[in-house]
Design a protein around this nucleic acid. Sequence first.
DNA 1: GCATACGGTTTAATATTGCAACCACACAAG
DNA 2: CTTGTGTGGTTGCAATATTAAACCGTATGC
Lengths: 157, 157
Amino acid sequence: MKRTSLAGDSCPVARALDVFGDWWSLLIIRDASLGRRRFGEFQASLGLAKNILATRLRTLLERGILKTVPASDGSAYQEYVLTPKGHGIFPILVALRQWTEEFDEHPDEIATIMVDRDRGKPVKKLALLSQDGRVLGAGDTTLKPRPARKPARRASA
Amino acid sequence: MKRTSLAGDSCPVARALDVFGDWWSLLIIRDASLGRRRFGEFQASLGLAKNILATRLRTLLERGILKTVPASDGSAYQEYVLTPKGHGIFPILVALRQWTEEFDEHPDEIATIMVDRDRGKPVKKLALLSQDGRVLGAGDTTLKPRPARKPARRASA
DNA sequence: GCATACGGTTTAATATTGCAACCACACAAG
DNA sequence: CTTGTGTGGTTGCAATATTAAACCGTATGC
């Protein structure tokens, strides 16, 4: 009767949600990608209960999204920073942001826009491209069964 | 003490999560984008309790992600289909999929790959571009305060 | 019509969330 | 080294959400 796990699911969307698809994890990851590192920073920024923050940080560590590093200010405390696997979540944050920018009923309540650091200009919308460079919408794609792993090009067993 | 709402948050990521950031909604949306339309189809595909499915469908309707249409087979039942606002979630599903493809520990358990319908070739990774066409990573972006709404270019009030 | 499938609602058990109090350790001051 | 405070949690309890399973009205199918 516990919350059903999606870990063994064959759908990659479900598998991702199993890792960080709960109510708080993505916001913690967002904060981490904004440079927040300390327990107290997350707690103050998100306003969630400390016990929940503690368990979320623990599972994000277990799952390789975050890692702990000795505190940057020389104190004996530790800090939480994104691993490469955690940084890989960035496009998902961008996609969420752009969805709100496009479809939210009250876009005036959005505080920030994402710009490229060099020019300060807004970024473009994420684009899904085919291998020959066409822009694809939802209707232009299908799912195919994943081909078996390529068998190392020797004798085909 | 109820689950804290993110609806009024100024962060666009949080606002999106408030709409479909719970455990099941994105999977319902995924199913809908795969062409599933009927209550029973969702329930069989996802294996979630029917009461939960009912409440999720209801809130997704309220929030303009889904709409009901008369059943396509002529029966008196209704079907659930994505609105344009719901179709807009597609890039988020793609981003989640691609994250799993890149970082999952057991990529062999992923059943499908996304291909472009015309050529049948795998799609490329979502790319974030600057206005002058450079590919941007997480470190190449910043957030700026959203500029005030442009005041209709007449007398500036 | 009569049985069955569909699309839910209701009920009760269990799990998760949220809040607040508590606690241990680090660090700073005296 | 002793006291005081901030940080980073843990613990316990109340409220809420999830789950499974029973139930039910309306459509279909025969």
